[in-house]
């Protein structure tokens, strides 16, 4: 019997830094969209996209908020591209203790781009809609997910963790995590 492969929707925002004019409109609309009630306030500090902007150095890089990082990386990266030196960690999406990017300014809680998930759904993410210069382009495509492969990977991973920490400890953590997720 043939195994049915799962279809997965991949949402991509293509970022063309050459087209970015550094206007921060993406930040404005993201923060307004995520305000409660919706659009009731504007504050780029709450945006899930931030533009690294240094006009004199010709640096204009929109960066999206990704995962929350409990601890900062062991080392930092610093890129030089076309002779332009970017800040440490410039392209990283993490809301990380090492910087104040992607955190709610009052509570410090991490922010993460949710692709403007809403009901009814938006035609395009708001930042893309407000970027009239097309530095941000939204693309959706379907991909076949290699689910079996993934499960295998997971098993291998768990096994190595169990070897290291003992199976009981792993099970404890899983239980705790599932409780806290429900709560």
């Amino acid at each position: 019997m043939k195994v049915e492969k799962r279809k997965k929707t991949i949402k991509t925002i293509r970022i063309d830094v050459d087209k970015c004019i550094g206007c921060m409109a993406c930040e404005v609309i993201c923060s307004a969209f995520h305000a409660t009630p919706k659009y009731s306030s504007n504050n780029p500090a709450r945006s899930r996209i931030r533009v690294i902007r240094d006009p004199i150095a010709d640096i204009f890089v929109p960066v999206y908020a990704g995962e929350y990082a409990v601890a900062e990386c062991a080392g930092r990266d610093k890129y030089t591209i076309d002779g332009k030196e970017y800040d440490e960690c410039a392209f990283c999406r993490a809301s990380c203790p090492s910087r104040d990017l992607f955190k709610e300014p009052d509570s410090g809680l991490p922010l993460k781009c949710d692709m403007c998930e809403s009901d009814p759904p938006q035609e395009k993410p708001l930042c893309v809609q407000w970027c009239l210069n097309e530095a941000l382009i939204y693309e959706v495509r379907e991909e076949e997910a290699e689910e079996d492969g993934k499960i295998e990977d997971l098993e291998t991973g768990l096994e190595s963790l169990a070897n290291k920490y003992g199976l009981n400890k792993i099970m404890d953590i899983v239980t705790r995590m599932s409780v806290s997720k429900k709560g």
């Binding site: 307004a32 305000a35 306030s41 504007n42 504050n43 709450r46």
Partner: peptide, 8 residues
């Protein structure tokens, strides 16, 4: 800080 809109 936030800037608020009256009728968003």
């Amino acid at each position: 800080g936030d800037i608020n809109m009256a009728r968003p």
